[in-house]
Design a protein around this nucleic acid. Structure first.
Lengths: 205, 205
DNA sequence: AAAAATCAATCAAACGATTGATTTAATTTT
DNA sequence: AAAATTAAATCAATCGTTTGATTGATTTTT
């Protein structure tokens, strides 16, 4: 059973994802969470701080798995990379609402504290990518390395765009039942192919 | 000189891009455009309709250039594709505010009329991609064709993500003056490389 | 053990401010 | 004269926040 505080957090997250921060009223959140209006002030201080708390709540633990993978010495670097990416895809799918907010907030300039948060978070991911590239080169597994920024753009851009537009794609391609599962499988294979090419990895499938 | 109507449109676009639709008040827009509050009702009917008009205003002519390129018979299909993509990049850079709104609206579920608008617009681009692929295959220029949806995701995702995050990348990479121009040049070359690979196009640089 | 004090949790109600929209009259531009 | 534009006032609705009071459990004091 969720605590009242978490209950507010989760319903707020969902509503912010659906309608955006400004378009979601505190009354709406409290109605959805079935709590009194004053509880937002009580638990979080304000609507703004509630928003920031969602980020604290969701962002911890995002990148830790990636660094665990990095230490799996029996894996080839390319497979480490692919493992991290697969996990990222699952994470975006699981925390759907949060990643909608996150994407929107990357575009907005509204909440300065959240902005700084996101920027640091993104830099951490860039650093992670950088380390993977360096390792792969050092081990002679990668024959070439694309520009870090573009590699990052392609990986995150492709994943987020393809997941965002999945219903549009399904509509356009006349996809039936089971479309999404097949789609995700193909997406992973597609990313694998692109990455192997970009990193000059020898083929051995 | 801009008409009053266009003046409102442009200032509204900029404010919506900066702060989002709900967080931007009509008073703010009119103050920025230096017109009376009643002019929004006079020209557009309501704040919502003003928002929709921005889309009508900017979206026309977006894809027409692409179809002009398609008819340039002296060009190889891959070069048509690259030309369209370059133009798209320049368009995103020129209509920066609008594309911020557009991206945000793709994520939101707020304005139903705009949602439908965007969805149709995206399908048109998918159709365009489909036609390019078909032409390239028919002419024997493309040896393979990736899944349409993923190709589209990679192209638009890479472009939008890399342009959105340019300041973060610059910061991370310790970029100095002239970073952006060099960055754009590299982005185009990078996309060219990826596309040639994905489409199985023979190299002849 | 009984009484008193403290605490976090919760509530309904109200606060002042702001919102988008509308109106009416006056003014300017064409 | 007609059309375009402004100014100012006003509307009901909604906004985020604050308030004072109440509850029930826990802790401290007597």
């Amino acid at each position: 059973m969720l605590s009242k505080e978490e209950n507010i957090l989760i319903h707020a997250e969902q509503l912010f994802a659906e309608k955006g921060f400004a378009a979601t009223s505190t009354r709406e959140i409290c109605k959805a969470a079935n709590v009194n209006i004053s509880m937002i002030a009580y638990y979080f201080g304000s609507k703004d701080k509630l928003f920031e708390r969602i980020f604290e709540y969701r962002m911890q633990g995002g990148i830790t798995y990636a660094y665990q993978v990095l230490e799996m010495d029996h894996l080839k670097t390319i497979d480490k990379f692919l493992l991290i990416i697969d996990k990222y895809i699952e994470r975006v799918r699981t925390l759907k609402s949060f990643y909608l907010i996150l994407q929107r907030e990357q575009i907005n300039n509204n909440n300065p504290s959240t902005q700084k948060f996101i920027r640091e978070f993104k830099k951490n991911y860039l650093k992670l990518f950088q380390e993977i590239l360096n390792t792969g080169i050092r081990k002679g597994e990668f024959k070439q390395t694309p520009e870090l920024a573009f590699l990052h753009s392609t990986v995150t851009g492709t994943i987020l765009t393809s997941l965002n537009a999945i219903t549009t794609y399904k509509e356009f391609l006349n996809g039936g039942e089971g479309f999404e599962e097949e789609y995700i499988t193909q997406l992973k294979a597609y990313l694998k192919k692109i990455l192997k090419y970009l990193l000059g990895h020898e083929k051995n499938d």
